[in-house]
Amino acid sequence: MTTGLLVLLGVLLLLVVVVFLLRRRFLLSGLGAVTMWFRPENSPRWSVGVAWYGGDALLWYRALSLSVRPQRRLCRAGFRVQSQRSAGRDDLALPGDVVVLECSTAEGPCQLAMEPSTLTGFLSWVESAPPGA
């Protein structure tokens, strides 16, 4: 009986790992999909995830999750980049070469961090919002 239970637990664990890997592959396969770190205002912790930006919103999915729904949806109409800086001493969870953006959104202030190669495309998307948006 215990051998059967161990086999069942092993199969379930393998299934969770496969679903997790397939979800990540699906998220990164989309046009405009990039690795991005997110930190809400007054939070000491950065969360890594995959962001899709296009159309009128940025959809951010937590990397260590099985959810198929985005954890954050930031509308481009209310999105403003206030400043940008290199990762510093307070950003220990981030790789050293990322750029941190201080942003204001309709949901409140937040910080986004991304690799420099991603920054130009992202800022172009933000700045190309329709007039009045």
Rank of each mutant, 00 (worst) to 15 (best):
F122L: 04
R85N: 14
L21N: 14
L101N: 07
G96P: 01
E41Q: 12
F26I: 05
S104H: 08
L119K: 10
Q84S: 10
W52T: 01
T105C: 09
S104G: 08
G55N: 12
S43F: 09
L64Q: 14
P109R: 11
G132T: 07
A129R: 12
G30K: 15
T120W: 07
E127N: 12
Q71L: 11
L22D: 06
L94I: 13
G78N: 09
W60D: 02
V17F: 02
F38P: 00
R25N: 07
D97P: 00
V19P: 02
Q82H: 06
S128Q: 15
L58R: 04
G78F: 05
E102M: 09
V100Q: 01
V98Y: 06
D90W: 07
G32Q: 03
P131F: 07
V18I: 13
R76N: 13
T3M: 06
L6S: 13
P44I: 09
F26Q: 08
R24C: 01
V48R: 11
L74D: 03
R72T: 01
A63S: 05
D56A: 12
S43R: 15
G108Q: 13
P109Q: 15
F38C: 02
P116W: 05
A51R: 01
Y61R: 00
E41D: 08
V16Q: 14
G78C: 04
L59T: 00
V17E: 11
V18Y: 06
D90Q: 15
D56S: 13
V11Q: 15
L58Y: 01
F122S: 01
G30P: 00
L92W: 02
T105G: 03
A106V: 12
A93T: 02
G78P: 07
Y53Q: 04
Y53W: 13
P131H: 12
C110I: 04
G4M: 08
T2R: 11
S47C: 04
D97W: 06
Q84C: 06
A63Q: 07
D91Q: 05
R89M: 09
R72H: 06
E107N: 09
V18M: 07
G78A: 14
V16C: 15
P70H: 13
L8A: 14
W46G: 00
V126W: 01
S128V: 04
L6R: 14
L119Y: 09
M1R: 07
V34Y: 05
A133M: 13
Y61P: 00
R23V: 03
L21K: 14
V50T: 14
S29Y: 10
C75D: 06
L15G: 12
R72P: 00
V19E: 05
A93F: 04
R85K: 13
D97G: 03
W60L: 05
A129C: 05
S43E: 15
L101M: 10
R72F: 01
L21P: 02
S124T: 08
S47R: 08
